[in-house]
Nucleic acid binder design. Structure first.
Lengths: 223, 223, 223, 223
DNA sequence: AATGAATGAGTATTCATTCAT
DNA sequence: GATGAATGAATACTCATTCAT
């Protein structure tokens, strides 16, 4: 599998040469246009012309920067993934405790979701467009959760009876659906774009997570 | 919005007349074929010809039973939704306690997921095909969770500080991603189809849920 | 290699079913339209729309009868090849002597060439479109010549010192360039379409062939 | 018609100024690259980028030397034509008799063909690219044959009953197909490049030509 | 002179849907 | 009721050519 990697030096797929400053700018404009078009119309309704028109460049130019429609889709998922993880770790910096960090991380996630609805829409369509990149996306985020959970279990901040991997996926799923329901659907319903999760919902979610993770005095047996 | 409803009497979109016994059988064969084709190829790669071929009927006949490709897609989501909820309530019957019922419900959900991968794949693509039906699907399941949670809070089996709606969506998301990760991805990776969630994973998830829902002696304040 | 064969039963490439009477008619209209378009514009300038428009059918219908542009091209070459060979053997029937038959065959060839300029143009472009079918075309005609030459050598009507294979290819090349020069170029120059080779030219060519094939009293040594 | 002529002084189509020494070298490298690319891929598959890459120069530079893709194609045909004629007359020098000269000329033709497969491939595609240059190519070679034939008829070395023009085209066609069949196809089949015609084939061809051209004691009547 | 990034016209092919049989 | 031949709108991608540097 040779997925576009976010650490590779950027090169033109046509010539294989590294991108100039101006080239990088054009590439970024294409990605931004693609984020918008994919988010609004979905992968299949989106067309290269729509993307290039929104980016304000010629149709043919697209192919100087991306191999194909699928290729820009994958690049976009990887880009959004990098940015959401960045947003999350930024939010977690300076948190006092493990739990605070966890909450802050979620807040960062939701903030990014609110500002980049494409993250959801694009990812949920990715199953049939590029399964590899879909898995990469989820796995990278989940690995972050998992590492945090293991560390917190060591320090006793998190229930040692929890399976870190399962728990990480559970948290990921929770975040995804809560974001979808209370950010994106609200956006659609109200016509305005909420920039943050409703505090009541956020509090409810926090209570849920705190409960789930907190160490129990008498570990339950779940046989 | 005029979504196909699962309680309406079935009629031919062409003639408007109610379906005969034989007609209902043909319609069901179409739905089953569609479940397979959509699950394997996704909505956009699927074609009416592929569906009718798998159903063993003529191409033109399709339009005696469904208005359009989107229409059978919506009917399929609604059908799967009805069946997964049935599977869940069936599993919950005879459970001794609230918590047992909860676990049983999840087990039913996962069993259905394992047997009907279309449920995931179809639903996750539905965002751009038919947002209405997508929301209907999630909402119906979540409403079931929510009702259960409210009742359990009354009896004190579930932490009264949890917000039932938020919690219900959290559980839904959890189930979705755990099913995706540990049933569908395993299926793809191993080539064989697991019929049940790995017990370790299931236990981990149960612990997580039990933790999250159980009443706390000293209700936490999460302000 | 799986070239379309002129003896296969005709089937729809889409469904694999044999063609109905009406289907065969449509297929023939497509081939005739393709003959015209390819001859006038060449393979690359020709487009499927131009062909279907000339045939008076819908664009999509094309693909019920042919897999691709290349596929109708190959079918056309094979069809023309079959017909030119038919035209030649028909012309040779009833010839009194070997030499008369030979002359008559060439006359048939030129008559067909004059009426079907596509034969030249299409074949000469075939090198890069479908080398296989190009070779098939030449080989089939040449094999006919070669068989005739061998037989005539047995009866002593043709110089036994000639190599039948080489001679057959020489005759093929001769016919091709003479036809090109004195039928097709004249057609282009005069704007009218000659239906037969100028008698002077035909006579010159006959003399050339007669000389070349006639048995020599004292076989030359060409070392 | 303003075909590039092989006697014109070479000028840059961009500036109209005559080419410098260095310019002429670049132009020749382009022509050589074009010969290779056209021969391997055909006119339509060939692209300016491929040609300039093989020539090792920048894409834009191409247009300093040629007006268009068609223009370099025409220049190439004219160049190859000049060189094949040169190869033929060189081979004929020092031949003892008319017939020896004829044979030597053909040998020169085949040697060039074997070394420059582009000659065939390019010419046979030229019909729709540039009919003018195609005709020029054939006519120039044929005129050489024709002049030789007329002279040989005067001296009695060649049958006076033959029409020189027809005969010349017949010889041209012969040479073309024999070269195609026994040089180029062999090359493709064996993967190795024969540099000369198989002696058996060459002998067979010589016998054929000798027969065809030799004066007859009793001139045949071809009515 | 030399370059190569940018352009957009042009086209093969797919597939949901219709309708005559 | 059932069928499947016919339709044409819609779109990703290529490449000759231009022109600013």
């Amino acid at each position: 599998m040779s997925l576009p990697d976010d650490t590779d030096e950027l090169v033109s797929p046509a010539t294989g040469r590294p991108l100039t400053k101006r080239g990088e700018a054009t590439r970024r404009r294409l990605l931004e246009a693609a984020e918008g078009v994919f988010a609004e119309q979905g992968y299949h309704e989106a067309s290269i012309v729509k993307i290039t028109e929104r980016a304000g460049i010629g149709l043919g130019t697209f192919y100087l920067y991306f191999d194909s429609k699928q290729s820009i889709f994958e690049a976009l998922v990887i880009d959004l993934n990098r940015r959401v993880r960045h947003s999350m770790s930024e939010a977690m910096e300076g948190a006092g405790s493990r739990l605070e960090a966890e909450r802050a991380g979620f807040a960062g996630f939701f903030r990014f979701t609110a500002e980049h609805p494409a993250l959801y829409r694009v990812v949920r369509e990715a199953e049939f467009v590029s399964p590899e990149v879909l898995r990469l996306h989820y796995t990278r985020i989940v690995e972050g959760y998992e590492a945090g959970l293991r560390a917190a279990q060591e320090t006793g901040d998190v229930d040692r009876a929890l399976d870190p991997e399962t728990t990480a996926w559970a948290l990921m799923g929770m975040g995804e659906l809560i974001g979808m329901r209370f950010l994106l659907w609200e956006r659609d319903a109200s016509g305005t774009a909420p920039t943050e999760l409703d505090p009541v919902i956020f509090a409810g979610m926090t209570r849920f997570i705190d409960n789930a993770l907190a160490p129990r005095d008498t570990p339950k047996d779940d046989s």
